[in-house]
Design a protein around this nucleic acid. Structure first.
Lengths: 341, 341
DNA sequence: CTGAAAGCGCTAACAT
DNA sequence: ATGTTAGCGCTTTCAG
């Protein structure tokens, strides 16, 4: 078990003071006008023995950890997983590490996670916030921490966020249903006051209203246990035999709809048309293929990290916070059209 | 921006020495025979002002970070995502945080990640190791770090690991194909010398051989870019029209098979039967539903964390390392049977 | 029972 | 151009 080297070991071995080593290692050699010969010697030795500064000590001293805390709703949901991957990659390239966690939309758990991140001295926060976490985020911001929200935002909290135009995405998909001649279009969503969900419902309702149709919104309580989502859905479909199209509020619900329809032997497309918010591998592969309102995951990840890095590098006066709204992309597949492609 | 409290602030406010505070906070009050009255007073004040010890300083001092590093192949693969979730939960309940990362099966990237974990002073490692990382892991172990491998192991490295009986899983699935009357059964896998993949091929080959059939193994180079996986697969299917059943080495390849078959208008089940290693939402939902060799994700996660916690709490003499092999569960669905259910 | 003080490894103001 | 030194916040030995 080889002992871990410290900066003092290096300094002693080279007969130089540790300050000098520190300066050289932190690229302040020029500024301090250290002889390039010495720099060379130090760098060579450091590489040779494989010395790595102890980042714990460094963080303790500088107050910076070069870590970003990322909180998604559920890392096993492909939408969040892919965004997390992209953010991780970009952060990594910019010298930041990511610690990520799933909130499960649980306010209490989220609060604990924020505490943990805080405790770990993360330099910035990226999160898809659950409801009821406003105060905690505000307190983070008050303490000068950069916070970027994505997928949704908190109206009461003034900070940067990146999301898609949920209203338009749902509006547009609903209009598409109507154009295809569907009349009894239901919207299935989670019981939630999160902005993205609220906007999606609104978009749906406006589109329905504009055509003088009747809005049917089925709200289901969010639950980790899938069976508790499938059950109300099953009831809903059984008691609403007249429905000819469903718009689901996210991919999780979309998949639940598919499961129930399979179970009840309801044919997707010929019995009930379907469009889901958020794309998913399943949708493309399904027979018939399922239309989806795809979110531009790369663009979301890019914008999130860009905004955060800007804050992180900002020297002083915090700029006004920005809201970045991206466009969704309606992927029309077989599940939502009258005639199969 | 409220200043962060330190142990000194608490000590001053209460007119007690910081040592005493430290003892009380770390549950050593009894041992040090501190008056329960004082303990009471300190605890109350700490709760009141919401003081949290700085974990960075604590880690620097104690050399323990209460963090576990978890490296999976790809966090956006549901198999790894669900294991990661389960491990995270269990670790959390035992006072450990998890930092996780995707290796992408990239040895170089993995090496960097190990460095980063090391740098962060994680207390233990859980990983699904890529090939070629043996030395790095060995060096970790030599330095006394607990390392638990899962999903696969490294024959040259003597450490704990948890995996399923891959040989039997594949053998069994192949036998099932044969029982159903399929004769030209192909095995599609990644070009890999990882133990789990090797064992799966072996299981397949043994089963084929036992029935005097001909083994057809298609090996595809692992690639992040799906198109580079689909292409050889497309070629393979075009040039092997006689194949009537495919066993895929993992869920990723299983999904790729589905994609290609859809594209080439090959009917799953009636044209080619299919079983995939690793279960996936897609498989259950697909029409026809796809048979899969399911891995017991809960049991894997449970065993991994249990073994690691045992090491972490072990006071001294490292016990012999253990190999935990779990059973797979063949989920027979419509894609692999002669007559539809 | 409690306190003083050393020290984990690093950075940076302040000498020299 | 390089060295001295004082912390960052915490734990822990040793002395009262």
């Amino acid at each position: 078990m080889k002992k871990k080297l410290s900066i003092v070991d290096i300094a002693n071995a080279l007969n130089v003071s540790k300050t000098t080593i520190s300066f050289i290692l932190n690229g302040r050699a020029q500024e301090k006008r250290i002889s390039s010969e010495l720099i060379e010697r130090v760098m060579k030795y450091v590489a040779e023995v494989g010395y790595k500064p102890n980042s714990l000590a460094k963080s303790l001293r500088t107050g910076k950890s070069n870590t970003i805390g990322l909180m998604v709703e559920d890392i096993s949901n492909p939408f969040f997983a892919s965004i997390a991957r992209l953010i991780e990659d970009r952060a990594y390239k910019n010298g930041y590490k990511i610690i990520y966690c799933s909130t499960d939309n649980d306010t209490h758990k989220t609060r604990e996670l924020i505490d943990m991140f805080r405790d770990r001295h993360v330099d910035g926060y990226i999160m898809a916030p659950p409801e009821g976490i406003e105060e905690d985020i505000q307190s983070l911001i008050n303490d000068g921490m950069p916070v970027v929200l994505f997928d949704r935002h908190l109206p009461k909290v003034n900070t940067d966020f990146v999301e898609v135009d949920n209203y338009f995405g749902a509006y547009n998909a609903t209009k598409h249903f109507i154009e295809q001649g569907f009349k009894n279009i239901a919207f299935v969503t989670f019981l939630s006051s999160q902005t993205q969900m609220v906007d999606r419902v609104k978009g749906y309702e406006e589109a329905i209203k504009s055509e003088n149709l009747e809005a049917v919104v089925k709200e289901i309580a969010f639950n980790q246990n899938d069976e508790l989502i499938l059950e109300p859905l099953r009831d809903f479909l059984k008691t609403h035999q007249d429905i000819d199209a469903i718009l689901s509020g996210n991919n999780h619900l979309g998949i639940c709809c598919l499961k129930i329809m399979k179970e009840l032997n309801i044919q997707v497309h010929s019995d009930i048309a379907l469009i889901s918010f958020d794309d998913h591998d399943v949708f493309e592969l399904h027979s018939p293929s399922i239309s989806a309102i795809a979110q531009p995951v790369e663009a979301i990840a890019d914008n999130v990290i860009t905004v955060l890095l800007k804050r992180l590098n900002a020297l002083s006066i915090p700029e006004k916070s920005q809201a970045i709204i991206l466009k969704t992309d309606l992927q029309i597949r077989n599940s939502s059209i009258r005639k199969l492609l």
